[in-house]
Amino acid sequence: MEALTQLQLAFDAVLGLALLWLAWQTLASPELFRAIVLFIAFGLLMALAWVRLEAPDVALAEAAIGAGLTGALLLTALSRLEPKNKSKIPHSKKPESEVDE
């Protein structure tokens, strides 16, 4: 029993640290697309956390919404946000219209 508890505790610790690290990387990411993909991964890990907290109903809602819907929403919004003449240089985030003003 003791070993089982320790194993579960190790799982919880890894999951918790991964969640915090992922949130930090999401918010500190210089690139928007990377931030969104990291956020999707964050949602996946959140579902695992709900499972460990004995809340499968919440996990179901999070899986349906966090894994699918939010990611699609964010990616669609990002695609409309990207300037039409975006080059492949990652740091050309500012749109051209700003120069005209």
Binding site: L32, A35, A77, L78, L81
Partner: peptide, 11 residues
């Protein structure tokens, strides 16, 4: 950036 703010609120 507003998208980052939205992500932050979600987190």
């Amino acid at each position: 950036h507003l998208l980052r703010k939205i992500l932050a609120i979600n987190i």
